[in-house]
Write a protein that binds this DNA or RNA. Structure first.
Lengths: 329, 329
DNA sequence: CTGAAAGCGCTAACAA
DNA sequence: TTGTTAGCGCTTTCAG
């Protein structure tokens, strides 16, 4: 059933029906007529037909590298909360860390499918830049800072610095590092720079033999910890770029009888639910993921309302969650 | 720019352009002409205009109660993987456990916005039933069994039964239970029934004082465990409906010096990443969440292809992951 | 405040 | 194989 069939059924004009579903510039008797007919027929207007004319999809595209990650699902939850209140729905693309899919969804979103885009990417390239510039709708990047675009990001460098400093201040002097791919500017590069800054400031030097690069997984953290402890210069504190990596490293320590925090202090970033529940509760930098999602959504909303054109960067603060894994006197 | 402007620019007819983007029933020279013009103009066809005619959205609506849950994000990942391969995108609605939003999104999806619906709900009502019946597109329910509709579900009763039996077989004789809202048939009711079946079969009786109903959270598990241990008849084994609840209960035990598994064996359901990492690794029933999502998506795909009308129910198996929390001789 | 009618950008039937 | 053209279902002027 389409709008004119329905209008006939209701005994009103097509425009009356259209107005009923939109601004409601309508007399009460017609309104009642329409509501009665709605009850009878179960008619629903077609969203795409509306979009063809009005150019409004009420859809926001969200591109993310994976779903089953605590940080990403928290961010997405924040996005969905804010956007939902404004009547937007999410068109979700899970790229499964596949670079090609990231690009192709950006292409897809140029087909007037969405009113705006939120991108949670890990690695940025020139192709990203050129595609984002060609975008006809506003876009916001969450979790990374990318000059020339709207971003909501964390203070990754500061967080890594503070956590490392926390351990050095407690007397550690052989700091080790397990980081992530440095092409990921936020979780990879910046967290490494924060670690290095703290080490250098403490008057120590960064020992390349005590620095590893892991994947974002527990297993990888485990492997890298094993490697770290295979050398003769054993670390007495370990900064990990994520809680997951730290958890893997702790698993190794438990197996080998390396005591935390006595033999080795350890901390992560992200303050995951799991970190609190580990056999030694993990000190971590708390990043406000849900807030990041909310702020990203708010930024996008304001972009979609007025084409300001000024791009903004918002950096969120972090908090230090100190727990037993660094509880050395 | 629209299709006719673009066709003019390219020097071909509109149908040539339309064919280029669809079946490709097209001579090579025109194809080249179009591609050159595409390069020049960056033209992209409008998806909604296409949908108005073709009635195909290439969108599947996914309704879920929350995002930041391991089980749900795993299911969603499975859905997205299968559907993505077939060129479908996800229109995600996060209801935040709000019943009203569940209903309103079902309404929303009647506006020809999607080609199919996947519903991950916890509690089913008659309103769900009537709305789902009115649906113009196929729908699949994942995680719950609901007669008369397409479902992919777990063997919740069996899983709870096996985990409880595991502990009773090891000599426990005062079994306790922390479950979820029984209106949630899968995680609430069936897991309770499984527990009760195992207890009864072992020749024991279910002690109502040793049965609690918690929310799906660690905090709630903690509180209920406290309550459980406040009575004089202390349990010697505890079955929890989810790993999260079990983790909360274990936190309480650790605080109070209740030794696991010596004083209390404990197990959960879901086999979460966190469970493996707890201070005593948690025995749990492994449910194949990602597989559930994949199978749900496959079922939906086949429904969308041919209106079979026959509704199917698929129940997935579970596996037992035995760990230290039940490692009593 | 209301209804008629002209599109929105595209697809698909049809004629060539 | 192609191009012309009539819609898809809706919104939005515009004249009443």
């Amino acid at each position: 059933m389409n709008i004119s069939e329905f209008a006939k059924e209701a005994g009103v004009s097509v425009s009356a029906v259209s107005r009923y579903f939109n601004n409601g510039y309508l007399a009460d008797d017609k309104r009642a007529l329409i509501e009665a007919a709605l009850e009878r027929t179960g008619y629903m207007p077609s969203y795409s037909a509306r979009t063809v004319r009005s150019k409004v999809t009420k859809l926001v595209g969200v591109i993310l590298p994976k779903l089953s990650s605590e940080s990403i699902s928290r961010i997405t939850e924040g996005i969905s909360e804010v956007l939902g209140e404004e009547g937007f729905e999410l068109l979700l693309v899970n790229t499964a860390n596949d670079y090609k899919r990231e690009i192709s969804s950006l292409e897809l979103f140029r087909q007037n499918r969405v009113d705006g885009v939120i991108l949670l990417a890990s690695v940025f390239t020139d192709l990203h830049r050129s595609l984002l510039s060609k975008m006809r709708v506003p876009a916001v990047i969450v979790g990374q800072q990318f000059k020339g675009f709207n971003c909501v990001c964390h203070n990754d460098l500061g967080a890594a610095y503070s956590m490392t400093k926390l351990m050095l201040d407690k007397g550690a002097c052989r700091p080790a590092f397990i980081g992530a791919n440095p092409e990921d500017k936020a979780a990879g590069l910046d967290r490494r720079l924060g670690f290095e800054k703290a080490v250098t400031e403490a008057g120590l030097t960064v020992d390349p033999k005590l620095c590893e690069t892991a994947k974002f997984s527990m297993d990888s953290g485990y492997e890298k910890a094993k490697h770290l402890f295979s050398g003769k210069n054993r670390p007495d504190c370990l900064f990990c770029a994520t809680d997951n990596i730290a958890a893997g490293a702790m698993l190794y320590c438990r197996e080998k009888g390396i005591l935390i925090p006595d033999d080795l202090m350890i901390c992560g970033v992200g303050d995951s639910r799991m970190g609190k529940m580990l056999y030694v509760p993990l000190s971590s930098a708390h990043l406000h993921y849900k807030t990041a999602g909310k702020e990203g959504a708010k930024m996008l909303l304001s972009e979609m309302k007025n084409e300001s054109g000024v791009c903004r960067i918002m950096q969120l603060k972090y908090d230090i969650s100190e727990r037993e894994s660094t509880a050395r006197q």
